[in-house]
Write a protein that binds this DNA or RNA. Structure first.
Length: 503
RNA sequence: GGGCGCGUAGCUCAAUGGUAGAGCAGCGGCCUUUUAAGCCGUUUGUUGAGGGUUCGAGCCCCUCCGCGCUCACCA
């Protein structure tokens, strides 16, 4: 059971007193006629007319001043001031308001809009009603708008853990947090609109899967009792969405949750939102063009511009983005030409020769060594939106090889602000080649290696019916949200990020 | 998992190893145009938990818990 603080006990006492006085502290219905913004707009449109409104919101400040009181309430649109005087309601009623109402209470107020001596558009209250009593005080905060318009906060909830654990309190007292999640919603809506307009069909595929695949990650495992079988939460949508291409759906996409049983960091959460699309008869170059258009469109919808400030960087999303061929990019920053080293051993030796301080894992495959070079030396330089393309085959088991280059596949990743935003390729549609790749992957790892790619026989069966050539794409929606809202931790863009359980 | 750092009142934060404090919030008053309202008075702490060193620990040491940053991992 909850233990109440002295403050909470006082408020619980008030609840009792209210009920004793026949005032319901949690009435069923509200009678709001205007939001704060609507009331202000109606009043300011013509101040000579009487504007009568009923507002509802949470009390954020109270300034009782003898026979009159000021208060600010906040609703979904913002704050608005209430002005209560004995002239309108009598001393007893005003005293009741001052005594029984607290910061955090939801209240309804009816009256006429007016302007105070200080010039603030304010509701002169004739009557008021309690809508919901707040028992626990919200984290105290005070913010003051200076003459120059800047807002100074004197005390606020800024403990990162508490803000994430009690997001409801964070949202209640930090309007900018509400704004972040409005932008997130706008982003997802804009991605949908963009793809819908271009004839992509939104679909839903299983989250609970008998076999996981489409990425290299450890899954969350669970168990279906009746079927008596283990099941996995999906780590990607890829293999199910591509099955749909076999079914003659030419353009499909899904926005949803992926689950990966991996480490948590400023850019990783165990569950995260992914956008994937698959596009028949397109290749990775067409996907590249669609990607830059889509992200530029989203940036404009969310922020009003294709120029986005992220930390110290001003990012320009307007197409075309910079394109860097992986071999050339690595050559430029490290002096190592991966094309000259066809085996892991040769490449490892070349890396040690050019960069004695580099410490790649000696057991790495050639692809992992290349990945090491990219992550270590190239990624940090990719600040403006950039497509890095042509990846090593052995770390891309679902991508199609470049004609006449057995070691390289048609794959690109989009980088922004030094981290990976999206991943795409010309999809492998040759069932025999795919089977080989799965088997190769198996050989590259120990039998019990958690990164081992499980062989999905049903996926191969689907592919044998014939899969059209196609381009596929996956993007971390949380990461794009971070970039578009200038937040530097994934926790800031997730309403309820994963946290260790309390106590 | 490794390294570094943090944890003090409801909130934001102070406090050389020497009596745990301030502002806001709360509570009791005064106040008919306030907006960090003001003025007078006043309450609140297992200093994250446990152990140790010391005459004496919020402060030093150890263990644990939680969080942050970072490294590793994450095609």
């Amino acid at each position: 059971m909850a233990e109440y603080t002295p403050l909470e006990k006082i408020r619980l006492q008030k609840v009792e007193e209210l009920r004793a006085a026949n005032v319901e502290p949690y009435p069923t219905r509200a009678e709001r006629t205007h939001t704060s913004a609507q009331a202000l707009a109606a009043f300011e449109a013509d101040e000579s007319q009487e504007t009568n409104v009923t507002l509802a919101g949470r009390i954020r400040s109270m300034r009782p001043k003898g026979k009159l009181s000021f208060a600010h309430i906040e609703d979904g649109d913002g704050k608005i001031q209430l002005f209560l005087r004995v002239n309108e309601m009598g001393e007893e009623r005003l005293a009741f308001f001052n005594k029984m109402f607290d910061l955090g209470d939801f209240v309804e107020a009816t009256g006429t809009m007016m302007r105070t001596k200080a010039g603030e558009a304010t509701l002169l209250v004739r009557d008021f009603k309690l809508l919901a009593k707040s028992i626990s005080p919200l984290p105290a905060d005070k913010d003051v708008t200076q003459a120059d318009g800047t807002v100074v906060r004197y005390a606020s909830l800024d403990d990162a853990e508490l803000r994430a654990r009690q997001r409801y309190a964070d949202l209640a007292v930090n309007p900018d947090v509400r704004e972040t999640f409005r932008k997130r919603a706008k982003l997802i809506k804009s991605l949908r609109a963009f793809l819908d307009e271009r004839g992509f069909l939104e679909v839903e595929t299983p989250i609970l899967q008998p076999l996981y695949g489409g990425a290299a990650a450890r899954p969350f495992t669970t168990h279906h009792n009746e079927l008596e079988q283990d099941m996995y939460l999906r780590i990607s949508f890829e293999l199910y969405l591509k099955r749909l291409l076999v079914g003659n759906l030419e353009k499909v996409y899904e926005i949803g949750r992926d689950f990966r049983n991996e480490g948590v960091s400023f850019k990783h959460n165990p569950e995260f939102t992914q956008l994937e699309f698959y596009w028949a008869y397109a290749d990775y170059l067409k996907v590249m063009e669609l990607t830059e258009q889509m992200v530029a469109y989203a940036a404009e919808q969310v922020t009003g511009s294709t120029k986005v400030q992220f930390g110290e960087h001003e990012l320009e999303f307007k197409p075309p983005w910079r394109r860097v061929e992986m071999r050339q990019g690595i050559l430029d920053v490290t002096g190592v030409d991966i094309a000259e080293h066809a085996t892991a051993e040769a490449l490892f030796a070349a890396i040690r020769e050019k960069m004695p301080k580099a410490a790649p894992d000696p057991k790495s495959t050639r692809g992992k060594l290349i990945d090491f070079l990219v992550g270590e030396y190239l990624e940090p330089t990719l600040i403006q939106p950039t497509f890095l393309y042509n990846y090593p085959r052995d770390i891309s088991p679902l991508a199609k090889s470049i004609p006449d280059d057995a070691l390289t596949v048609e794959r690109f990743e989009g980088y922004v602000a030094g981290f990976e935003l999206c991943n795409a390729f010309t999809e492998l549609n040759d069932p025999l080649d795919q089977e080989q790749r799965f088997l190769e992957m198996g050989r590259d790892y120990e039998a019990d290696d958690e990164e081992k790619h499980p062989l999905d026989e049903d996926y191969l069966r689907a592919m044998r019916y014939g899969m059209p050539p196609n381009g596929g794409f996956g993007m971390g929606v949380d990461r794009l949200t971070m970039i578009l809202t200038d937040k530097h931790s994934i926790r800031e863009v997730l309403l309820f990020p994963a946290l260790r359980k309390e106590e």
